[in-house]
């Protein structure tokens, strides 16, 4: 596919995602019923959980593309990896800012060492390292390889971090008043959640394609200017 087509597809998907997100916002403000024990604050759920899911999807894609880049050495894979990683950072930031806002109401504190929250925070820092390595290496070729190594080690470290933060939590039980989500979701809440998951995923895919075509254009510009200088 040419960059033009990807750009177009990305724009379409992003627009669909944004409109869909608008619908989700409407649903979660006006349509869905209020949860009984937590009241209104539980509505943060409908942006918090999809953002978490999307960031994990994005970081997973970034690690996958990084691994394939080291294997196949196709420039396009590296561009895909950096685009996905940027998306992961964006959605992880949403997850990490909405989480404490909900936690303050549900738990009484902004931060508890809730395993998934902690894992996302550590992932955020791992991918911060990914971008720092990329941007501070003199030789861009080398930077791409090094960043890919960071992403792969980060991805393979996730199970260990996940298990360890859960284990830590079991050692030091935090004063949890209310569980973050109920065991089963009533119908309309589930519908809203699924709609929101769909909206975030489509929005991410669209913006990912836009970001990817941006990288494509950038490298095109690079080769063009190199040809011009030769």
């Amino acid at each position: 596919m040419s960059t033009k087509k990807i750009l177009l597809a990305g724009t379409m998907l992003a627009m669909i995602g944004l409109v869909w997100l608008g619908v989700v916002y409407w649903m979660s403000f006006f349509w869905v019923s209020t949860e009984v024990t937590q009241g209104i604050a539980q509505r943060i759920f409908y942006v918090h959980v999809p953002a978490a899911w999307t960031s994990f999807l994005a970081f997973g894609l970034a690690a996958l593309f990084s691994g394939m880049y080291l294997w196949l050495r196709d420039e396009r894979l590296d561009r895909a990896a950096v685009s996905a990683a940027e998306g992961g950072m964006v959605f992880a930031t949403i997850m990490l800012t909405t989480g404490p806002l909900w936690g303050k109401i549900a738990w009484g504190t902004y931060w508890t060492w809730e395993p998934r929250l902690t894992l996302t925070l550590l992932l955020w820092f791992i991918f911060l390292g990914y971008f720092l390595v990329r941007s501070s290496t003199e030789n861009p070729e080398k930077g791409k390889r090094h960043a890919a190594v960071v992403a792969i080690v980060g991805a393979l470290d996730i199970p260990f971090i996940h298990l360890s933060v859960i284990w830590f939590r079991s050692l030091h039980p935090a004063p949890v008043v209310i569980k973050p989500e109920g065991p089963t979701l009533p119908g309309d809440m589930l519908t809203t959640l699924l709609m929101s998951l769909g909206a975030f995923t489509v929005l991410f895919l669209g913006l990912f394609l836009l970001r990817y075509s941006l990288e494509n254009l950038r490298s095109e510009l690079d080769t063009r200017s190199r040809h011009a200088s030769v």
Partner: peptide, 27 residues
């Protein structure tokens, strides 16, 4: 080996390895 090749040098090292080493500290 990664951070020696960057402009940031050793200052980058903790950012890279501390999040990965959380399991070591915890266990």
């Amino acid at each position: 080996a990664v951070s020696t090749g960057t402009r940031m040098g050793d200052t980058l090292l903790p950012v890279l390895i501390f999040p990965l080493l959380a399991p070591v500290v915890i266990y």
